[in-house]
């Protein structure tokens, strides 16, 4: 398990209207096996930052180090889960999707299918190994995506609002499932969301970002015992605290609470 250092990362976007600052001088560190949520309103650069950590974007200045080694591009030390259900390959079954990373690594067919089956069991989809993505619900597709990102055993899991497009009930189930998966695998997780309740439910630590330009506003440790109860008084208290830091007293326009 590897620590991640993010040092003075800055990135500007070229748009038809000129340069727009995406993120500016962002620095923080993530401990091995830590679950970190990055929270902030639209335009705060949280997804941009995740894309830089994933190696999809190059920062204009600053650097990301994973276990001391600078990130120069995509790498199999990181697994990525996107928000869009369409991230799965429609021409592959659930099993085929989950085996993809291992196939790229050159793992023999029998072994990679065994591992893929185990990963699908972890996300409770062992009955759907032979299903194509279009036969699965949105929640199931996202579970396949999580299994796929875990299958080749990366140390870090990067998740970009993976449950944002799901209905509220399914989202609750998925959060519970992800908390279980994390407890079992102890991956380092960086999870981007604009949902405060989600962050309080999942995170060891929450990084709050503010927009224009995207900067880290503050970091909040969530010391609640796991498994967490979203209906408990302390849980609601933490939710309020976080919303307060985000500059919204009781859930503003672009911030969401679960419910």
């Amino acid at each position: 398990m590897l620590p991640i250092e993010i040092r003075d990362v800055t990135l500007n976007y070229d748009t038809p209207g000129g340069k727009v600052q995406g993120v500016k001088d962002v620095s923080f560190t993530i401990a091995p096996s830590e679950f970190v949520c990055i929270v902030g309103p639209s335009g705060c650069g949280k997804s941009t930052l995740l894309n830089i950590i994933a190696g999809f974007l190059k920062p204009a200045s600053g650097e990301i180090r994973i276990d001391g080694k600078p990130v120069t591009g995509q790498g199999m030390d990181r697994g990525v889960v996107f928000q869009d259900f369409a991230q799965l390959f429609p021409w592959r079954t659930a099993l085929g999707n989950v085996s993809f990373g291992l196939e790229m690594k050159g793992v023999p067919k029998e072994e990679r299918e065994k591992i893929a089956r185990e990963q699908l069991r972890l996300v409770k989809l062992e009955k759907f190994t032979a299903s194509y993505p279009h036969h699965l619900s949105g929640g199931m597709q996202q579970r396949v995506a999580i299994a796929r990102a875990l299958a080749y055993n990366p140390a870090v899991l990067l998740m970009d609002e993976p449950f944002a497009a799901l209905d509220a009930l399914t989202r609750d189930d998925m959060q519970r499932l992800l908390a279980d998966v994390w407890r079992e695998t102890r991956k380092t997780v960086i999870y981007v969301t604009h949902n405060v309740a989600e962050a309080v439910y999942l995170a060891d630590r929450v990084i709050v970002m503010s927009p224009h330009p995207g900067t880290v506003k503050l970091e909040v440790k969530i010391p609640l015992e796991r498994p967490r109860d979203p209906l408990s008084a302390e849980f609601v208290e933490w939710q309020k605290k976080l919303l307060h830091h985000l500059g919204h007293e009781a859930g503003g326009d672009d911030m969401q609470t679960n419910g």
């Binding site: 999809f56 990181r78 990373g101």
Partner: peptide, 15 residues
């Protein structure tokens, strides 16, 4: 071709 597929495949080490 959906760029997300290329990204996902790239992240999983596809050359």
């Amino acid at each position: 071709v959906n760029p997300l597929w290329l990204r996902a495949a790239g992240a999983m080490g596809a050359d």
